[in-house]
Design a protein around this nucleic acid. Structure first.
Lengths: 345, 345
DNA sequence: TTGAAAGCGCTAACAG
DNA sequence: CTGTTAGCGCTTTCAA
């Protein structure tokens, strides 16, 4: 890290000297405020040329210190290991840039401490807005933002102290469950109750999805087996563990299941493959989340895709309007009615 | 965006006043340089308490402007839509933070213009190092960094003006090809030549992998069909298109293939499923990249996992030592010799 | 049409 | 042990 100052960075003073003018003229030309200042085109062009030659780049730290708005927008996100968060981040960056905002993103690996630390760092960098995605304690983050006079927004998981944009977890889960139950009826004559697996019962999304899961069963008069609701965590290993335990204790497993995320699905599929259960008859699966490869895994997996575009549009609508409320906006997820199921292997 | 200054942010002057001391004492306490200054514990504690109460967060812009090192480290990355780049970003963030560096990351969506713009933005934010991941024109970025006196590093795709850390594409591809050819021999009595699909022939990684692909065929005296080297791009649709075209023109397809990335694999698998080709006998597949679901897709897919940990360790070794060279470091990818292949469905 | 100068919030050398 | 002070590079009045 001993990158010594071999090359002192070029400043507007250097450019001013080279152009035979003043720093304020250079500043005005470079940041576009020069039309107002009625600087001569000649000077403007000269300055621009020299800046180019010198490969000049403004010192944002200095610029921001002086200005009263930073145009920086922050996001914290739990993980980059699945398509959902990946596309959230990518879409967020694109939409932010389209508005002339500079996005900074931090991955907090579902670590509550890191979330807070990251939020504090973002405030130090003078973000104008902070989007807390899937945060474990969104209200804490909102409090910090409120204290700093900075807008905050919750995404994916709701809070009570800032606007929240989330999927319609109840509706989506109910519809997804309904679809699997219909398949179940087709396959077994009568719909058989499903297993719910993955997620944390304590988080809002999971509990709403469980509610939808229950509702869909109730809708057709099928009784849910309470011991078949396994919200033991997000990691693949958790799902594997739960299935293994269930298999040991009950011997045979339900003929269909509702999997709460692609991350859990990873564990589920791995376990199915390894354990050799379901060898004669593979289970019907519904997954609340989408992954292109999982989609290819067979005709028995139904997936709901959360509407990332839709959610981020809501996010930026709020940011653009500067509104501040405490509403929860639920964005319906998307059911991809894919091409005809043809087994790959 | 009309977030007006309702709450003027707390500064060290405010804290100083509240604590009945000076701004410099507050500054020293808050940034840890106070042991050198032999400030009384009592004062330090008082200041810390008050800062806490006020929810104070330093103004980084002001702090960085004054200091001569920013502790900011930048990375540009092409996409967030696959596990490889996802884990690069996540590992990068973690390792940077462990060193007290603040990571800022920008996704450039394989857009050359955006790459340059992003690099310029990072320089404006006074990054101390810039890691260009999978950049289309790494040397241009290095030039900008050199001009600004900032260190730069290439990751995944090599350049000639900064150290480059890449996978051993030749070696990895040769070994991967070898493995598929062995399977081919088992299955068909004699090894049959494979199809190469995905990537851009113009990029270094792809051409090295093609070289490895050729070498492995040559090693066992099997002739490569030149018209079966299809490096038509990274997007899934490109792979689909190439396969469709080949199927039309030749009628039947090779019995095995080397797929250049999970992104291309997505298109390949989709096409296989949709087209109904390979219905009687599914193809042997090797993929130069890894995805957990693709891994579950059947026993006929062999994957190499690029060693993200290893590559980032190299990156930070260079950063930690401040060395600056122009070497290319090749990190061997990992062959996961998975569990016994058991078809899922 | 242009330049001088003040000051954003913080750090660090120096003077007590 | 503590406070005063001089900038860091830029933006923005204000005066010329």
């Amino acid at each position: 890290m001993n990158q010594k100052k071999l090359t002192k960075k070029t400043t507007i003073y250097d450019l001013a000297e080279l152009a035979g003018t003043s720093a304020s003229a250079v500043s005005a030309v470079l940041n576009g405020s020069w039309k107002k200042r009625r600087i001569s085109i000649a000077l403007a062009e000269r300055i621009n040329r020299i800046a180019d030659e010198q490969g000049y780049a403004v010192n944002m730290q200095a610029s921001l210190l002086r200005r009263d708005n930073s145009k920086i927008i922050g996001m914290i996100v739990p993980k980059y290991d699945n398509r959902y968060f990946g596309s959230i981040v990518e879409t967020f960056e694109t939409m932010a840039r389209a508005r002339g905002l500079f996005p900074i993103i931090t991955c907090t690996r579902r670590d509550p401490e890191l979330e807070i630390e990251a939020a504090r760092a973002m405030l130090s960098y003078q973000v104008e807005w902070l989007v807390a995605t899937g945060a474990t304690d969104p209200d804490h983050i909102s409090d910090m933002c409120i204290a700093a006079g900075v807008g905050s927004l919750n995404l994916d998981l709701p809070g009570t102290k800032a606007p929240s944009i989330i999927s319609d977890n109840f509706g989506g889960a109910r519809e997804l469950t309904r679809r699997i139950l219909i398949k179940s009826k087709h396959e077994h004559g009568a719909a058989q109750p499903l297993l719910f697996i993955g997620g944390r019962a304590s988080d809002h999304n999971t509990s709403e999805r469980i509610r939808g899961f229950r509702a869909a069963h109730q809708d057709i008069g099928v009784r849910v087996d309470e011991s078949h609701i396994l919200a033991s965590g997000y990691a693949p290993e958790k799902a594997e563990g739960s299935l293994a335990a269930l298999a040991t204790s009950e011997g045979h497993l339900p003929s269909g299941m509702f999997v709460n995320s692609t991350i859990s699905l990873e564990g589920v599929m791995r376990w199915i493959k390894r354990s050799g259960h379901y060898k004669e008859q593979s289970p019907l699966i519904g997954c609340f989340d989408w992954d292109p490869f999982a989609d290819l895994l067979g005709d028995k997996i139904e997936m709901v895709r959360q509407d990332v575009q839709g959610m981020l549009t809501e996010i930026f609508t709020i940011i653009d309007s500067g509104a501040s409320s405490t509403t929860v906006i639920q964005v319906p997820p998307i059911f991809v009615t894919g091409d005809q199921p043809v087994p790959v292997y």
